[in-house]
Design a protein around this nucleic acid. Structure first.
Length: 762
DNA sequence: GATTGTGCCCTTTTT
DNA sequence: GGGCACAATC
């Protein structure tokens, strides 16, 4: 045990040893936060504390897995496995399944992912006869999600004058009604969305004190990682469970709060002081991860934020390599430069692929990077994006499984009632939905009883519906007899998805078939590895067991054969991770910081914290990059370097590279020093594109003029931006660029080779 | 009812 | 450029 503590510095020891009472650890980036948490768990177990009485909460699956791994490394599998460690959603979904009956849910309730939720909202809009354009689905979902995160239910939402006012002003007065309809449907489908997991946990603990007491009593020790990212619902859950023993340890860093968009509030860190006046505050400020240059760059960036708790992150590591900046002319070239750089370092320094990570702001950026890595034969893996469980074919087969486990699952039913095609067409399905709504029942209950099927549906369709119901029922009857894998492969064979895909015979269908096989493999593995925690005996694993938390799995959490790969992911996904060589790409205005976030200080500061997180992932070498042009919305757009680049002092950069973006290279970036001034006029292209500008320009016989003919002073027409005046032209050949002031879009820089301009007048 | 074609959004970020 | 909703056609 002394051995354990001797591996930690003084502050870390403080964080580890004080296991009784509330503790708040404010931990700078790279200061050994996860280390402190895992050692704390190990320390508790060595003190003889029962593993079953410890709950450790994280935000991402990746962080949870990492922690599990580290704890078992310290103290071995036997005990480590018994600690309740996982994401908020995973841990409380588990509890909700045990207590579901109190909330009027079956314990087999299904968890709807974002896609399912969006489909439900679409259905509700249809129900209420609302225009989907007036109520954009993602926007509505966001509002509902926010309400749930703040524990505002549908009735409260509707009756709250402030909310009603805001919705009214936003021209969306009926969001409350949509919210209500959405909840009704979820309930009828025995489904919860992500936010419901936290919402209903709060309801459970609020309305059933004896249940709350049970868990308070059981979980005597609670740890929360990334506390700055908790929203109100999460904050309250933690507060409630911890209320009895108050052995609560939260770890956070306000500088790394990057989930405000999802309702996270730094307020929770501040509240901690009020909620637990007697708490112990520990500061971890020494960075063990990164070189001096990297730490210095991060500090320079974050000091531009007004909103922050002052702290000094420092390191006594070496100065290290300067920061590199890559400038590319296009997003594709950016990919190539990054791939070449990785290739070079890997060769000259004898590094592994897994020493490198490429981080970006949006998932869409991965494409050009992938392409370049593939050309260089550098193995890589993308985290996030369209995850395995989100692929169409996987969701299709899963929908059958869902229906077997929970036939009320409307989303699942509608997804597969006519897939593979079995002659139950759109009209029929629509009639079923209408009839179900009229009878206030689910579609499944309706078609389960042939007498209830509306008479306007023709005979042929009815017999097909009956066949479908019979098939699903036959699967259900096998559920208790077969284990998960047997039943899954039986269903897969019977429904004929593979057959349908084979008939498609396209390149994609082959990979779709592979994905289905992979899903079945995953189920087989799951069936094998599960055994009873107390007796060690192998249990019969049901399909329902496998289905439980499938919606909470995001990444390919499964291990693959080759772990030595370059890792690509969003910065959000990279939080809590570290890599020797880090590339932060796409440092351009309107991309990073995102165009969505440059209008308010709060949002911009969140972007800056995100950049801070990105920088501080690097251990030895940080490389930043940007492109001068990039595909966005199917158009090539000129980009300017991100304002964040200016916030890092020149002296930290490799000299030549920095010079280039200051505009002293052979090919100066015209826009760099001037563009900031016209920003107030800038409108996001998609916002304005639907307005008058496009109607004049999306002429079907649009014929661009020869780029060589474009001269200053001309009036031109652009397919997307409409009319504009050419202010100046510079460069030659492929590099020829024009500065154009558009009537509806303000001033823009365009590469003439791509821009497709039509001369209207000289 | 199924298949093919066409226009219209679009892109933050995660559970 | 791409995915998705809706319309036109077999």
């Amino acid at each position: 045990m002394a051995d354990l503590l001797s591996q930690l510095n003084e502050s870390q020891q403080e964080a580890v040893k004080n296991i009784s009472g509330p503790v708040m650890v404010i931990a700078g980036a790279g200061s050994g936060k996860t280390r402190a948490l895992t050692f704390r768990i190990a320390y508790m177990l060595m003190q003889g504390i029962d593993a079953f009485s410890i709950m450790a909460l994280t935000f991402t699956n990746k962080a949870a897995n990492e922690m599990k791994e580290r704890v078992t490394r310290l103290i071995g599998q036997t005990e480590g496995r018994n600690v309740w460690m996982g994401t908020f959603h995973a841990v409380f979904a588990r509890i909700l399944r045990m207590e579901a009956v109190h909330l009027g849910y079956p314990s087999s309730f299904v968890i709807y992912d974002t896609d399912d939720s969006k489909n439900v909202i679409k259905a509700v809009l249809k129900d209420l006869n609302l225009d989907p354009k007036a109520y954009p689905v993602s926007n509505v979902l966001h509002r509902i999600s926010n309400a749930k995160s703040n524990l505002i239910n549908d009735d409260e939402y509707i009756n709250n004058p402030e909310i009603r006012d805001a919705d009214f002003k936003a021209n969306k007065p009926l969001i409350g009604e949509i919210y209500k309809g959405y909840n009704t449907r979820l309930k009828r489908a025995n489904a919860m969305d992500f936010d419901d997991i936290l919402y209903y946990t709060n309801v459970l603990f609020r309305d059933f004190p004896e249940i709350l007491y049970k868990y308070q009593h059981r979980f005597k020790y609670i740890l929360v990682d990334e506390y700055q990212d908790t929203n109100y619902a999460q904050y309250l859950i933690v507060k409630r469970i911890a209320a009895l023993h108050e052995n609560l340890c939260v770890v956070g860093d306000d500088a790394q709060s990057i989930y405000a968009f999802r309702g996270a509030s730094i307020q929770n860190i501040l509240n901690f002081k009020n909620d637990y006046p007697e708490h112990l505050l520990v500061r971890l400020e020494q960075n063990y991860r990164s070189t001096k240059n990297i730490v210095e760059a991060a500090n320079q960036v974050i000091k531009n934020n007004k909103d922050q708790i002052k702290k000094t992150v420092w390191t006594d590591k070496e100065t290290g390599d300067p920061i590199s900046l890559l400038r590319a002319s296009s997003d594709n070239e950016e990919g190539v430069l990054v791939a070449n750089s990785i290739f070079g370092y890997r060769m000259s320094k004898q590094l592994n692929n897994k020493d490198f990570a490429i981080l970006y702001r949006t998932n869409a950026q991965s494409r050009s990077l992938e392409e370049a890595l593939r050309k260089q034969s550098i193995p890589y893996r993308i985290y996030g994006g369209t995850s395995f469980y989100n692929r169409r074919e996987v969701k299709d087969l899963l929908a059958y499984f869902r229906l077997v486990v929970n036939p009320q699952d409307e989303e699942a039913l509608l997804r597969i009632i006519n897939y593979p095609i079995r002659g139950i067409g759109k009209t029929t399905v629509e009639r079923l939905i209408v009839a179900a709504n009229e009878q206030n029942s689910s579609v499944w209950d309706l078609i389960g009883d042939p007498h209830k099927i509306p008479s306007e549906i023709n005979r042929g369709a009815i017999s097909k519906i009956v066949d479908f119901v019979t098939m699903i029922r036959s699967f259900q009857s096998l559920h208790e007899k077969k284990n998960a894998f047997e039943l899954a492969s039986h269903i897969n064979k019977s429904v004929g998805i593979i057959k349908a895909l084979k008939e498609e015979d396209s390149p994609e269908s082959i990979s779709r078939i592979e994905n289905i096989e992979e899903l079945l493999n995953a189920i087989m593995e799951f069936s094998d590895k599960q055994f009873d925690e107390t007796t060690g005996e192998q249990n019969q694993i049901r399909l329902a067991d496998f289905m439980q938390d499938i919606a909470l799995l995001t990444d390919q959490d499964k291990k693959t054969e080759n772990d030595d790969v370059v890792v690509l992911m969003t910065i959000h996904a990279a939080k809590g991770l570290e890599f020797p060589y880090v590339y932060v790409v796409g440092l351009e205005e309107n991309l990073f910081p995102s165009i969505m976030s440059i209008n308010t200080r709060a949002e911009l500061e969140e972007e800056r914290r995100l950049f801070y997180v990105a920088i501080t992932r690097a251990e030895t070498k940080l490389t930043l990059s940007y492109a001068e042009s990039r595909y966005r919305y199917g158009n090539i757009m000129l980009c300017e370097p991100s304002r964040f680049l200016d916030e890092i002092d020149e002296s930290l950069f490799e000299q030549t590279k920095k010079a280039s973006f200051k505009g002293t290279s052979s090919q100066p970036i015209q826009s760099f020093s001037t563009t900031n001034t016209h920003k107030p006029n800038f409108k996001p292209p998609h916002q304005a594109a639907s307005k008058s500008a496009t109607s004049t320009s999306t002429d079907s016989e649009f014929e661009p003029s020869d780029p060589e003919a474009i001269m200053p002073g001309m009036t031109i027409l652009h397919q997307k931006f409409g009319k504009g005046e050419v202010l100046s032209v510079e460069g030659i050949g492929a590099n020829k660029k024009a500065s154009v002031r558009f009537l509806a879009f303000g001033q823009k820089q365009l590469i003439l080779k791509f821009a497709k301009l039509k001369i209207i007048s000289n």
